Computed example of a mutant assay.
Amino acid sequence: MQAPEPSNKYGKTFAIIAWLILMALLFVFFQDTISKQLNPNQQLRSVQGSAGETRTVLIRNKSGHYVGTLLVNNQPVDFMLDTGATTVAIAAATAEKLGLPFGTAIKVNTANGIADAWRSRIDRLQLGDIVLHNIPASIVPGLNSGGGGTEILLGMSALKQLEFHQQGNQLTLIQRN
């Protein structure tokens, strides 16, 4: 009869720890890659044109939308550009976090039908070096309930103050001085 071989508990433990570390590193790497695919405009950069205008370029995400991060009253917020939205539409939880006023109650026509909302106003909205002031907005309670992470729909109350040109997968926003 042969004696059983001693088990190598340390080797198994080390292998499990190594696999866990590898999986964590892969998760961190791919999470960052997925985040950049969903929001390729997390760090908006602008350039000054020859006539003194400010130009900010947005890259279309993998779903075909222009999504990015802008500053509302100096606080970063994710947005999706929506030329079909009359005003800038803000999720209620985001509006509360930003300290925006809930003004007059109104009804708004959304993709999901008629919804309750409140008029509001954004003192300062910044896209790269483009700065807009006193922007009409609507606070819409169920705006980001779809889980897409979009906290603001950047609508025409802001966009009408800019020129914009699309070419390929890029949209250039232009603010004339």
Rank of each mutant, 00 (worst) to 15 (best):
L100M: 00
A105H: 11
E5M: 13
N41E: 06
A89N: 02
K160N: 13
T104N: 03
A85P: 00
L127W: 01
E5P: 08
S145G: 14
Q175G: 09
Q42E: 10
L25A: 09
D82L: 00
D129G: 02
L20K: 06
N109L: 09
E5G: 15
G11W: 09
G49M: 10
L173A: 06
L44D: 07
T110Y: 03
A91K: 00
G142A: 14
G149C: 10
L58H: 01
I122R: 01
V108W: 01
N61F: 07
S35N: 04
P101I: 11
D78G: 06
L159M: 03
P40V: 07
S120W: 02
A51Y: 09
S35K: 07
L125G: 00
T150M: 14
F30I: 14
H165T: 15
R121L: 05
Q166V: 15
L132D: 02
S120F: 03
G68S: 06
L171N: 06
T87W: 03
N41H: 07
N109T: 09
G49H: 11
M156Q: 06
P136M: 05
T110R: 03
I122C: 01
G146K: 10
G128H: 02
N112L: 12
G52E: 11
V140H: 00
Q167A: 15
V72G: 00
N73V: 11
K9N: 13
R176L: 14
I114D: 05
N169W: 14
D123C: 05
Y10L: 15
T94N: 01
A137L: 03
I130W: 09
A91N: 03
R124V: 08
A89W: 01
A105P: 08
M156F: 11
D123K: 09
I139Q: 04
G147Y: 02
V67A: 08
S50Y: 11
I135G: 06
L173P: 11
E163S: 14
V72P: 00
G11Y: 05
A117Y: 01
